[in-house]
Amino acid sequence: MIGDENQKLIPFIEALQLKKIPLTNQQFLEPLSKEIPALGCTVLDTYIKYFREDSFAPLEIHYGYTNGFQSETEVTDIFGDVERSESTRIKGTWVVHHPENKIRDSGATKTTQTTEQNPCSECGMLLSQTGVCDYC
């Protein structure tokens, strides 16, 4: 059964755009859909639930990381030698860290800004033209 969210499944790329995942991370995640085909995704408050076509539990795609890979090998087969770790949230699974994330110290993450937008002091996402953060 596909979760209790009672939401219609949407394509992966649409979920990434709805959740406003940074373009750098969207590009990083491109190999995921080729290596682990999805039935579809749902967009929840804090993450995207990526329903796999295989029999394994869905992946959880957050702003700066994806959680729920079955093994370290699964991560490296998809993304190569990238920053990864054992999950502390979902026992027995692995996490891949996205290039743009909130895990690293400030200054270690590259962001592209226009002169008209400033980063939020809390989360680092670019503020809207009104100066209000859409994420916090």
Rank of each mutant, 00 (worst) to 15 (best):
126 L>C: 03
40 G>T: 11
92 G>N: 06
69 F>A: 02
87 S>A: 06
30 E>D: 10
56 F>H: 07
73 T>G: 08
61 I>M: 06
104 R>Y: 09
78 I>T: 15
50 Y>A: 04
114 T>M: 15
115 T>N: 14
68 G>T: 05
75 V>T: 01
52 R>D: 02
58 P>C: 05
105 D>N: 01
43 V>C: 12
61 I>W: 06
114 T>K: 15
129 Q>E: 07
77 D>L: 13
56 F>Q: 09
28 F>H: 14
93 T>C: 01
131 G>L: 04
31 P>F: 11
86 E>R: 13
107 G>E: 06
56 F>C: 08
62 H>L: 09
88 T>W: 05
65 Y>Q: 06
39 L>S: 14
119 P>M: 12
130 T>P: 04
102 K>A: 13
107 G>P: 07
73 T>I: 10
64 G>N: 02
112 T>R: 14
52 R>V: 01
43 V>E: 05
110 K>F: 14
123 C>L: 10
86 E>Y: 06
91 K>Q: 08
59 L>Q: 00
91 K>F: 07
115 T>G: 04
52 R>G: 00
76 T>P: 03
79 F>K: 00
75 V>D: 00
129 Q>D: 11
64 G>E: 03
69 F>V: 06
66 T>A: 04
104 R>Q: 13
60 E>D: 09
60 E>F: 09
108 A>F: 10
113 Q>I: 15
53 E>N: 09
85 S>L: 10
101 N>W: 04
73 T>M: 09
99 P>C: 05
67 N>K: 07
57 A>Q: 08
126 L>H: 02
33 S>D: 11
89 R>N: 07
118 N>Q: 13
71 S>T: 13
72 E>Q: 14
128 S>W: 07
53 E>G: 01
96 V>W: 04
65 Y>D: 05
73 T>H: 09
133 C>W: 03
112 T>G: 12
94 W>H: 14
85 S>Y: 12
120 C>Q: 08
37 P>I: 07
87 S>R: 02
131 G>D: 06
76 T>N: 07
29 L>D: 00
57 A>F: 04
82 V>E: 10
84 R>E: 05
56 F>E: 09
99 P>D: 02
96 V>P: 00
82 V>A: 06
56 F>A: 08
63 Y>M: 08
60 E>Y: 08
75 V>E: 00
61 I>R: 01
32 L>W: 02
79 F>V: 03
31 P>L: 11
31 P>N: 11
132 V>C: 05
88 T>R: 04
36 I>P: 00
79 F>A: 02
64 G>D: 03
71 S>C: 12
93 T>D: 01
29 L>K: 00
115 T>L: 13
42 T>N: 12
66 T>Y: 03
28 F>K: 14
